[in-house]
Amino acid sequence: MKNKFLYRSLPAALLLLWLCVQSAGAQTPIDAILMPKGGLCIGIFYTQDNWNEYWEGTLKRDNGNVGVLKRQTVLPMVAFGLTDRINVLAALPWVRTHATAGQIRGASGLQDWGVWVKAEVLKAEHLSLQAALGATGPASNYLPDYFPLNLGLGNVEGTARAIAQYRLDNGVYTRLQAGYHLRGNTTIERNYYYTTQGYYSDQVDMPNAVTYSFAIGRWMNDDAFKAEIIYDGLHTTGGHDIRRQDVGFPSNRMIFQRLGASLQYYFPPSQKIGLFASGGYVLNGRNVGQSTVLTGGVSYQFN
């Protein structure tokens, strides 16, 4: 049994920022990527992530003792414009897990707090380059060694990310992101575990990870409406495969590529309120579930 990788909140946080920025940007040049100084935006997202097949190492399989693994996330977030070029974001997801088969109890609770600083490092007529630094860590004492029903991976993590966006005058844009996730150990509740060898500790050395995405989309209707297609993925830089018929473990080697699409809409005329909906499907993976992910969210921009 293996979990859908617990997607760290950064992409979602950036998503809030896109959502917020557009509202704020209604009064500013249309290629605005960051909120202006003093801008405050709040949002809440709901995500449902289901899978009934997963990859045990490279072997794709189902599991009658899991059935469908359902993960629901409620993600409140806030973004604030420190300056016109530097924004800070914070998020605190609440997660609930449930398996439709088997006798193992689902879990629920706060997952990982996250804070990010995002800065625009270059801005040209059509091009914007940004950098983001983030940190996440467990916000409750959930157990990471509870696959596939664990709320999160339980480790502190630092992320550095670069983002490039290129936008044409007709509203068509592309965006590239790449991030590196430097992960601290996670702590489990037994002091012996076996991965590819035994460890006499409750500490688990977590593999670092790379995440990336490529998006293409278009703003329409005077920037009240946006549609986007996104291809994203994750690749841990180490870790081990789930053994045959074993359960997942936080330090598994996790890989996936996912294809998704999203829509955003801003209520005219002020465009203070934004709506967001997206769907994604994991195309391929390793030691992760083949998730179908649906997200809906709303944001509000204060002046």
């Binding site: 004492n141 037994r190 002091n191 076996y194 074993d246």
Partner: peptide, 18 residues
Amino acid sequence: TVRQRQIANFWSDGLGTY
């Protein structure tokens, strides 16, 4: 309780353990 959960896991000694 967290303590009960810790005890359950400390002694789990299930599949993949000694």
